[in-house]
């Protein structure tokens, strides 16, 4: 087995004396699309922040040495950007991304390169979210970590974003870690799922093995089963 994009061993995170995560082990290979699911309060965002070294943890988080990681945090919304007269091109410039790379990434997510001149705060919700995905993909990261990237977009917009990410994943061997509640994403795009539960148990594996009726029941609070069309 080659070197993993990410290897997590015995990861534990404690917040205000409460164990949010304990003894988590995880291995994500290059080019895999891992979806992290779980009910609110199960520790999804805590896990993401720990993986990125944004909060203290115990255990080992080992990214492949030299790997370039893009991050799209939860709650990065358009309202802040609307308060600032910043064009899409200048928004990319905040990450020191040049004009040519900005144009490439905008086209990658299906936006015209002329959009670089438009005020970022006045894009439609769907355009803004696509622009954020382009922003994360700028500079050709080898891994991206996305925390609920489609919260502000409709179903079709969300599907488009995941199609773009899935395509990038296949073509550029991009490793994707994605937090979502959207079951369609898991079955359509994910290679693996990590399910976190509020009561501390977890499952990790391919979607059909992990997302059993019991897990779906805990996640959505109803008797659910996922059927695929024959």
């Amino acid at each position: 087995m080659g070197e993993a994009a990410l290897e997590v061993r015995n990861l534990s995170v404690t917040l205000n004396g409460t164990a949010v995560l304990s003894g988590l082990n995880l291995r994500v290979e290059e080019g895999e699309f891992l979806t992290i699911m779980g009910p609110n309060g199960a520790g999804k965002t805590v896990l993401v922040r720990a993986l990125l070294g944004l909060m203290p943890y115990e255990g080992e988080v080992r990214w492949r040495p030299g790997i370039k990681i893009g991050y799209l945090p939860q709650g990065l919304n358009q309202m802040f950007v609307r308060d600032v007269p910043v064009t899409v091109g200048e928004f990319f410039g905040l990450r020191r991304v040049g004009a040519a790379e900005t144009a490439r990434c905008l086209e990658l997510v299906g936006l015209p390169r002329a959009m670089a001149q438009k005020p970022a705060g006045y894009l439609s919700g769907g355009e803004f979210q696509r622009m954020l995905v382009a922003w994360v993909l700028a500079g050709r990261p080898q891994a991206v970590v996305l925390d609920e990237p489609t919260t502000a977009v409709d179903v079709a917009g969300g599907e488009t974003i995941y199609s773009i990410l899935g395509k990038a994943g296949r073509e550029e061997k991009l490793t994707i870690l994605n937090v979502t509640h959207d079951l369609n994403v898991v079955f359509a795009h994910s290679t693996h799922v990590l399910y976190l539960s509020r009561v501390g148990h977890r499952c990790f594996g391919v979607p059909r093995e992990v997302l059993t009726p019991e897990v779906l029941n805990e996640l959505y609070g109803a008797q659910l089963k996922f059927y695929t069309h024959p």
């Binding site: 922040r49 990125l52 944004l54 990681i69 991050y71 945090p73 709650g75 990065l76 802040f80 950007v81 600032v84 905040l94 990450r95």
Partner: peptide, 12 residues
Amino acid sequence: LLIGIHEDLAKT
């Protein structure tokens, strides 16, 4: 400005 937009993002 990046810190103002999202502190975690700025850190990463």
